[in-house]
Amino acid sequence: MKKKLNKEKVIWLIMIILCMAAVIFPIYIMFKYSISDRTSWITGGKYPIPWWPNKPTFEMYKYYLADTRFWGNAFMSLQIALLTVAICMVIGAPAAYSLSRFKFSAKGVLIFLILSIRLFPDISSVIPVAYTFNVSFLYNLPPVVKVALAHSVLGLPYVVYIAQGVFETIPVDLEEQATIMGASKLYAFTRIVLPVALPGLAAGAIYVFLLSWNEFVFSYFITATSSVSIIPLPVYLKSLFGAFSPNPVSVATLSLLVSLPVILFTFFVQKYMISGATAGAVK
């Protein structure tokens, strides 16, 4: 009996190490390229590409971190992501609350409508959305706002879906108690329900933040047509390896710089991400 248990444990350990390796390997490759010397690439197929960094150097990092354009783009990405989170939470959380609390006949239709926008392929919906932003009265909005508004279309269904699950876990008793004690619906929502729901809602906010930070298609189509030179980081990265002979060290370095904040972020918020999924996912 005991021996069998150990065997299971060993298999489990091996599997977990293999899975971690599968996840980390590409990230390692990126890291390796980013600190390799440029010359290592030019050998081009003659020798095997080394698995270890060739003459490690932080040259490229120094270059990007001193580049104002990089910082400008990074700042834009951050602004977009935060604005998207704000829009999605402010609009999505109250709607999710009402959808979870009130029983009315059109509820299913409303939820379906909110989620159904995700049926459109991004590449199909980006054209009308970009067109609307660039032709209508919205033209004069700053690019940050335009992109954030577009990302909110993608993020809102997630927030509504997750937040609805979170609100359903909060007992109605709390609000009824507050109501009896004299609180208005709005007061009960902002002072009782929201604070209790906050950890769960954080999950929604985190997903939307990641979504916005990582999003490429909408960012690309909306900013490509504007004359401003500041663009979100994913678009900036694409512009690098879209060239005919991309410089791998440069691509890898920028890739890592774009990913690093979200990688660190994930380590801090993984607990919320798990609990958010538990609240919203399976039903």
């Binding site: 990582n214 791998p248 990913s259």
Partner: peptide, 27 residues
């Protein structure tokens, strides 16, 4: 371990494609 398992989702898609492109490119 959970954080590591979540990483692929956190890394921008465009970065993932860039890595694959590097890994599978000529040379």
């Amino acid at each position: 371990v959970r954080s590591i398992f979540l990483l692929p989702m956190a890394i921008p898609t465009i970065v993932t494609t860039a890595i694959l492109l590097l890994f599978f490119s000529k040379g």
